[in-house]
Write a protein that binds this DNA or RNA. Structure first.
Lengths: 153, 153
DNA sequence: TTTGGTGCAAAAAGTTTGCATCCTT
DNA sequence: AAGGATGCAAACTTTTTGCACCAAA
Protein backbone atom coordinates (compact mmCIF):
# COMPACT_ATOMS: atom_id res chain seq x y z
CA UNK A 1 0.00 0.00 0.00
CA UNK A 2 1.16 3.54 -0.71
CA UNK A 3 2.84 5.56 2.04
CA UNK A 4 2.08 9.18 2.89
CA UNK A 5 5.19 10.36 1.07
CA UNK A 6 4.49 8.28 -1.99
CA UNK A 7 1.01 9.75 -2.24
CA UNK A 8 2.33 13.28 -1.79
CA UNK A 9 5.09 12.55 -4.28
CA UNK A 10 2.70 11.45 -7.01
CA UNK A 11 0.44 14.44 -6.43
CA UNK A 12 3.34 16.87 -6.47
CA UNK A 13 4.87 15.33 -9.57
CA UNK A 14 1.56 15.68 -11.35
CA UNK A 15 1.58 19.41 -10.69
CA UNK A 16 -0.90 19.48 -7.82
CA UNK A 17 -0.23 21.89 -5.00
CA UNK A 18 0.49 20.28 -1.68
CA UNK A 19 -1.71 21.98 0.85
CA UNK A 20 -1.76 21.14 4.52
CA UNK A 21 -5.15 19.57 4.02
CA UNK A 22 -3.92 17.30 1.24
CA UNK A 23 -0.96 16.27 3.36
CA UNK A 24 -3.36 15.23 6.11
CA UNK A 25 -5.55 13.38 3.60
CA UNK A 26 -2.54 11.46 2.34
CA UNK A 27 -1.58 10.52 5.88
CA UNK A 28 -5.12 9.47 6.73
CA UNK A 29 -5.33 7.11 3.77
CA UNK A 30 -1.78 5.80 4.17
CA UNK A 31 -2.58 4.80 7.74
CA UNK A 32 -6.04 3.32 7.17
CA UNK A 33 -6.31 -0.34 6.17
CA UNK A 34 -9.97 -0.21 5.30
CA UNK A 35 -12.30 1.76 3.10
CA UNK A 36 -13.45 5.25 4.06
CA UNK A 37 -16.65 6.97 3.02
CA UNK A 38 -16.54 10.61 1.91
CA UNK A 39 -18.58 11.34 5.01
CA UNK A 40 -16.13 9.72 7.41
CA UNK A 41 -13.25 11.50 5.68
CA UNK A 42 -15.14 14.76 6.08
CA UNK A 43 -15.75 14.10 9.75
CA UNK A 44 -12.14 13.18 10.42
CA UNK A 45 -10.75 16.15 8.52
CA UNK A 46 -13.31 18.47 10.08
CA UNK A 47 -11.80 17.93 13.51
CA UNK A 48 -8.56 19.50 12.33
CA UNK A 49 -9.85 22.04 9.83
CA UNK A 50 -12.46 24.36 11.22
CA UNK A 51 -14.92 25.33 8.52
CA UNK A 52 -13.93 22.53 6.16
CA UNK A 53 -16.44 22.08 3.38
CA UNK A 54 -17.77 18.87 1.95
CA UNK A 55 -17.15 19.88 -1.62
CA UNK A 56 -13.42 20.24 -1.01
CA UNK A 57 -13.31 16.71 0.35
CA UNK A 58 -15.13 15.44 -2.72
CA UNK A 59 -12.88 17.39 -5.05
CA UNK A 60 -9.77 15.97 -3.44
CA UNK A 61 -11.09 12.42 -3.37
CA UNK A 62 -11.95 12.65 -7.03
CA UNK A 63 -8.58 14.16 -7.99
CA UNK A 64 -6.70 11.55 -5.99
CA UNK A 65 -8.70 8.77 -7.55
CA UNK A 66 -8.02 10.08 -11.04
CA UNK A 67 -4.31 10.23 -10.22
CA UNK A 68 -4.43 6.62 -9.14
CA UNK A 69 -3.35 7.13 -5.53
CA UNK A 70 -6.81 6.18 -4.30
CA UNK A 71 -9.06 3.31 -5.30
CA UNK A 72 -12.81 3.55 -5.11
CA UNK A 73 -15.36 0.78 -4.73
CA UNK A 74 -19.12 1.02 -4.84
CA UNK A 75 -20.53 -0.89 -1.90
CA UNK A 76 -24.22 -1.56 -1.39
CA UNK A 77 -24.28 1.37 0.99
CA UNK A 78 -22.33 3.79 -1.14
CA UNK A 79 -18.98 4.87 -2.50
CA UNK A 80 -15.82 4.24 -0.50
CA UNK A 81 -12.13 5.01 -0.91
CA UNK A 82 -8.80 3.55 0.15
CA UNK A 83 -5.15 4.11 -0.69
CA UNK A 84 -4.15 2.35 -3.86
CA UNK A 85 -2.25 -0.89 -3.44
CA UNK A 86 -1.26 -1.25 -7.07
CA UNK A 87 2.05 0.55 -6.82
CA UNK A 88 3.87 -2.36 -8.44
CA UNK A 89 1.19 -2.77 -11.07
CA UNK A 90 0.57 -6.35 -10.00
CA UNK A 91 -2.95 -7.42 -10.81
CA UNK A 92 -4.84 -8.94 -7.91
CA UNK A 93 -8.19 -9.07 -6.15
CA UNK A 94 -9.43 -8.62 -2.60
CA UNK A 95 -11.20 -10.30 0.21
CA UNK A 96 -13.05 -7.58 2.07
CA UNK A 97 -13.98 -7.97 5.71
CA UNK A 98 -17.57 -6.96 6.40
CA UNK A 99 -16.64 -6.27 10.01
CA UNK A 100 -13.64 -3.96 9.81
CA UNK A 101 -13.52 -3.43 6.03
CA UNK A 102 -9.83 -4.29 5.91
CA UNK A 103 -8.81 -5.95 2.67
CA UNK A 104 -6.66 -8.98 2.02
CA UNK A 105 -5.12 -9.69 -1.36
CA UNK A 106 -6.12 -12.68 -3.48
CA UNK A 107 -3.53 -13.50 -6.08
CA UNK A 108 -5.77 -15.87 -7.98
CA UNK A 109 -7.48 -14.23 -10.93
CA UNK A 110 -10.56 -15.96 -12.36
CA UNK A 111 -10.05 -14.41 -15.79
CA UNK A 112 -7.34 -16.94 -16.52
CA UNK A 113 -10.09 -19.57 -16.47
CA UNK A 114 -13.31 -17.94 -17.61
CA UNK A 115 -13.11 -17.67 -21.33
CA UNK A 116 -15.47 -15.27 -23.00
CA UNK A 117 -18.42 -16.91 -24.68
CA UNK A 118 -19.50 -16.07 -28.18
CA UNK A 119 -17.14 -13.28 -29.20
CA UNK A 120 -17.62 -11.24 -26.05
CA UNK A 121 -14.87 -8.62 -25.89
CA UNK A 122 -13.75 -8.39 -22.27
CA UNK A 123 -12.56 -4.99 -21.10
CA UNK A 124 -12.83 -5.29 -17.36
CA UNK A 125 -13.71 -7.57 -14.52
CA UNK A 126 -14.55 -7.47 -10.86
CA UNK A 127 -13.88 -10.26 -8.41
CA UNK A 128 -14.48 -9.49 -4.76
CA UNK A 129 -14.94 -11.82 -1.84
CA UNK A 130 -16.81 -10.61 1.22
CA UNK A 131 -16.72 -12.18 4.64
CA UNK A 132 -15.17 -11.90 8.07
CA UNK A 133 -11.49 -11.88 8.91
CA UNK A 134 -10.05 -13.86 11.81
CA UNK A 135 -10.49 -11.04 14.32
CA UNK A 136 -13.99 -10.03 13.36
CA UNK A 137 -15.10 -13.65 13.21
CA UNK A 138 -14.05 -14.08 16.83
CA UNK A 139 -15.82 -10.89 17.84
CA UNK A 140 -18.98 -12.05 16.13
CA UNK A 141 -18.87 -15.32 18.05
CA UNK A 142 -18.24 -13.52 21.32
CA UNK A 143 -21.27 -11.33 20.66
CA UNK A 144 -23.38 -14.37 19.78
CA UNK A 145 -22.39 -16.08 23.02
CA UNK A 146 -23.21 -12.96 25.02
CA UNK A 147 -26.60 -12.63 23.31
CA UNK A 148 -27.45 -16.24 23.96
CA UNK A 149 -26.43 -15.92 27.62
CA UNK A 150 -28.65 -12.85 27.94
CA UNK A 151 -31.56 -14.75 26.44
CA UNK A 152 -31.32 -17.42 29.14
CA UNK A 153 -31.61 -15.02 32.04
CA UNK B 1 -35.39 -15.56 -16.46
CA UNK B 2 -38.81 -15.06 -14.90
CA UNK B 3 -41.84 -14.50 -17.13
CA UNK B 4 -44.49 -11.85 -16.59
CA UNK B 5 -46.88 -14.40 -15.14
CA UNK B 6 -44.28 -15.90 -12.83
CA UNK B 7 -43.51 -12.46 -11.43
CA UNK B 8 -47.21 -11.66 -10.99
CA UNK B 9 -47.74 -15.08 -9.43
CA UNK B 10 -45.07 -14.60 -6.81
CA UNK B 11 -46.34 -11.16 -5.93
CA UNK B 12 -49.92 -12.34 -5.67
CA UNK B 13 -49.02 -15.38 -3.59
CA UNK B 14 -47.15 -13.11 -1.18
CA UNK B 15 -50.31 -11.13 -0.61
CA UNK B 16 -49.47 -8.11 -2.74
CA UNK B 17 -52.26 -6.52 -4.71
CA UNK B 18 -51.92 -6.76 -8.44
CA UNK B 19 -52.52 -3.31 -9.80
CA UNK B 20 -52.39 -2.44 -13.45
CA UNK B 21 -49.15 -0.61 -12.82
CA UNK B 22 -47.53 -3.66 -11.24
CA UNK B 23 -48.66 -5.81 -14.12
CA UNK B 24 -46.95 -3.44 -16.52
CA UNK B 25 -43.82 -3.42 -14.36
CA UNK B 26 -43.71 -7.21 -14.42
CA UNK B 27 -44.08 -7.23 -18.18
CA UNK B 28 -41.38 -4.59 -18.60
CA UNK B 29 -38.86 -6.57 -16.59
CA UNK B 30 -39.82 -9.91 -18.09
CA UNK B 31 -39.15 -8.53 -21.55
CA UNK B 32 -35.93 -6.63 -20.83
CA UNK B 33 -32.64 -8.50 -21.06
CA UNK B 34 -30.56 -5.79 -19.46
CA UNK B 35 -30.51 -3.73 -16.30
CA UNK B 36 -32.89 -0.82 -15.85
CA UNK B 37 -32.36 2.24 -13.69
CA UNK B 38 -35.19 3.55 -11.51
CA UNK B 39 -35.15 6.59 -13.76
CA UNK B 40 -35.59 4.63 -16.99
CA UNK B 41 -38.36 2.59 -15.38
CA UNK B 42 -40.05 5.81 -14.32
CA UNK B 43 -39.77 7.23 -17.81
CA UNK B 44 -41.12 4.10 -19.42
CA UNK B 45 -44.01 3.78 -17.00
CA UNK B 46 -44.71 7.50 -17.20
CA UNK B 47 -45.69 7.17 -20.83
CA UNK B 48 -48.57 4.91 -19.88
CA UNK B 49 -49.52 6.31 -16.49
CA UNK B 50 -50.17 10.03 -16.51
CA UNK B 51 -49.15 11.55 -13.20
CA UNK B 52 -47.01 8.61 -12.13
CA UNK B 53 -44.82 9.48 -9.20
CA UNK B 54 -41.21 8.51 -8.65
CA UNK B 55 -41.79 7.25 -5.13
CA UNK B 56 -44.26 4.64 -6.33
CA UNK B 57 -41.67 3.32 -8.75
CA UNK B 58 -39.12 3.15 -5.95
CA UNK B 59 -41.58 1.46 -3.61
CA UNK B 60 -42.41 -1.17 -6.18
CA UNK B 61 -38.80 -1.79 -7.14
CA UNK B 62 -37.90 -2.22 -3.49
CA UNK B 63 -40.84 -4.54 -2.79
CA UNK B 64 -40.10 -6.64 -5.85
CA UNK B 65 -36.46 -6.89 -4.93
CA UNK B 66 -37.35 -8.01 -1.41
CA UNK B 67 -39.67 -10.63 -2.85
CA UNK B 68 -36.84 -11.92 -4.98
CA UNK B 69 -38.43 -11.33 -8.36
CA UNK B 70 -35.95 -8.56 -9.13
CA UNK B 71 -32.19 -8.46 -8.69
CA UNK B 72 -30.37 -5.25 -8.01
CA UNK B 73 -26.75 -4.41 -8.72
CA UNK B 74 -24.87 -1.30 -7.76
CA UNK B 75 -23.01 -0.07 -10.81
CA UNK B 76 -20.48 2.75 -10.80
CA UNK B 77 -23.23 5.02 -12.06
CA UNK B 78 -25.95 3.89 -9.73
CA UNK B 79 -28.44 1.23 -8.77
CA UNK B 80 -30.00 -0.94 -11.45
CA UNK B 81 -32.61 -3.69 -11.58
CA UNK B 82 -33.44 -6.70 -13.69
CA UNK B 83 -35.77 -9.68 -13.47
CA UNK B 84 -34.34 -12.41 -11.33
CA UNK B 85 -32.76 -15.27 -13.20
CA UNK B 86 -32.30 -17.53 -10.19
CA UNK B 87 -35.61 -19.32 -10.44
CA UNK B 88 -33.88 -22.69 -10.44
CA UNK B 89 -31.49 -21.64 -7.70
CA UNK B 90 -28.51 -22.36 -9.89
CA UNK B 91 -25.51 -20.29 -8.90
CA UNK B 92 -23.85 -18.41 -11.73
CA UNK B 93 -22.24 -15.13 -12.73
CA UNK B 94 -22.63 -12.64 -15.54
CA UNK B 95 -20.87 -10.97 -18.38
CA UNK B 96 -22.38 -7.54 -18.71
CA UNK B 97 -22.28 -5.64 -21.98
CA UNK B 98 -21.21 -2.03 -21.53
CA UNK B 99 -23.02 -1.13 -24.74
CA UNK B 100 -26.50 -2.56 -24.32
CA UNK B 101 -26.24 -3.79 -20.71
CA UNK B 102 -27.58 -7.19 -21.62
CA UNK B 103 -26.18 -9.97 -19.47
CA UNK B 104 -24.82 -13.36 -20.42
CA UNK B 105 -24.43 -16.17 -17.90
CA UNK B 106 -21.03 -17.52 -16.88
CA UNK B 107 -21.29 -20.94 -15.33
CA UNK B 108 -17.75 -20.92 -14.05
CA UNK B 109 -17.52 -19.85 -10.43
CA UNK B 110 -14.13 -18.69 -9.15
CA UNK B 111 -14.95 -19.63 -5.57
CA UNK B 112 -14.27 -23.26 -6.36
CA UNK B 113 -10.65 -22.24 -6.85
CA UNK B 114 -9.92 -19.32 -4.57
CA UNK B 115 -9.50 -20.71 -1.13
CA UNK B 116 -9.84 -18.28 1.73
CA UNK B 117 -6.52 -17.32 3.30
CA UNK B 118 -5.92 -17.37 7.03
CA UNK B 119 -9.29 -18.30 8.49
CA UNK B 120 -11.26 -15.82 6.46
CA UNK B 121 -14.95 -16.74 6.69
CA UNK B 122 -16.48 -16.20 3.26
CA UNK B 123 -20.13 -15.14 3.18
CA UNK B 124 -20.46 -13.68 -0.26
CA UNK B 125 -18.67 -13.02 -3.50
CA UNK B 126 -19.00 -10.96 -6.62
CA UNK B 127 -17.64 -11.92 -10.01
CA UNK B 128 -18.64 -9.76 -12.92
CA UNK B 129 -17.10 -9.43 -16.35
CA UNK B 130 -17.64 -6.25 -18.31
CA UNK B 131 -17.12 -5.81 -22.01
CA UNK B 132 -18.90 -5.68 -25.33
CA UNK B 133 -21.14 -8.32 -26.81
CA UNK B 134 -20.94 -9.36 -30.45
CA UNK B 135 -23.46 -6.77 -31.62
CA UNK B 136 -22.13 -3.83 -29.68
CA UNK B 137 -18.57 -4.67 -30.65
CA UNK B 138 -19.52 -4.40 -34.30
CA UNK B 139 -21.31 -1.13 -33.71
CA UNK B 140 -18.28 0.27 -31.93
CA UNK B 141 -16.08 -0.64 -34.89
CA UNK B 142 -18.52 0.86 -37.34
CA UNK B 143 -18.48 4.10 -35.35
CA UNK B 144 -14.68 4.07 -35.20
CA UNK B 145 -14.45 3.65 -38.97
CA UNK B 146 -16.91 6.48 -39.51
CA UNK B 147 -14.98 8.75 -37.13
CA UNK B 148 -11.71 8.01 -38.83
CA UNK B 149 -13.21 8.68 -42.27
CA UNK B 150 -14.52 12.02 -41.01
CA UNK B 151 -11.06 12.90 -39.69
CA UNK B 152 -9.57 12.44 -43.15
CA UNK B 153 -11.85 14.90 -44.87
C1' DT C 1 2.56 37.04 -9.50
C1' DT C 2 -0.07 33.48 -11.16
C1' DT C 3 -2.82 29.63 -11.04
C1' DG C 4 -4.81 26.32 -8.47
C1' DG C 5 -7.23 25.33 -3.87
C1' DT C 6 -10.70 26.43 -0.58
C1' DG C 7 -15.08 27.93 1.66
C1' DC C 8 -19.62 29.31 0.97
C1' DA C 9 -23.94 29.00 -1.09
C1' DA C 10 -26.83 26.90 -3.94
C1' DA C 11 -28.35 23.59 -7.07
C1' DA C 12 -28.85 19.07 -8.84
C1' DA C 13 -29.69 14.23 -8.55
C1' DG C 14 -31.23 10.25 -6.14
C1' DT C 15 -34.06 8.30 -2.60
C1' DT C 16 -37.27 8.19 1.33
C1' DT C 17 -41.34 9.49 4.24
C1' DG C 18 -46.07 11.23 5.82
C1' DC C 19 -50.53 11.73 4.62
C1' DA C 20 -54.94 11.89 2.23
C1' DT C 21 -57.28 9.48 -1.38
C1' DC C 22 -58.16 5.67 -4.41
C1' DC C 23 -58.84 0.91 -5.63
C1' DT C 24 -57.88 -4.25 -5.21
C1' DT C 25 -59.40 -7.85 -2.60
C1' DA D 1 -65.81 -2.54 3.88
C1' DA D 2 -60.81 -2.68 4.92
C1' DG D 3 -56.25 -2.24 4.09
C1' DG D 4 -52.84 -1.95 0.76
C1' DA D 5 -51.34 1.13 -3.32
C1' DT D 6 -50.86 5.55 -5.26
C1' DG D 7 -50.00 10.62 -5.96
C1' DC D 8 -48.43 14.65 -4.00
C1' DA D 9 -45.47 17.32 -1.37
C1' DA D 10 -41.68 17.66 1.18
C1' DA D 11 -37.62 16.17 3.43
C1' DC D 12 -33.24 14.06 3.28
C1' DT D 13 -28.73 12.38 1.53
C1' DT D 14 -25.18 12.51 -1.57
C1' DT D 15 -22.69 14.90 -5.01
C1' DT D 16 -21.77 18.80 -8.13
C1' DT D 17 -21.15 23.68 -9.67
C1' DG D 18 -20.24 28.86 -9.69
C1' DC D 19 -17.92 32.33 -7.61
C1' DA D 20 -14.96 35.19 -4.73
C1' DC D 21 -11.00 34.90 -1.86
C1' DC D 22 -6.72 32.85 -0.30
C1' DA D 23 -2.33 30.58 -0.65
C1' DA D 24 1.35 27.37 -2.83
C1' DA D 25 4.67 27.56 -6.29
Amino acid sequence: MLTTDEIIGVMSRQGLRITDQRRTLAKLFAESDGYLTPKSVYEYMGKKYKGLSFDTVYRNLRVMEELGVLEQIVFEDGLKFRASCNEDGHHHHHMICLGCEKTYPIHFCPMTFADAPDQFEVVNHKFEVFGYCKNCKNNKEAVAVAESAKGQQ
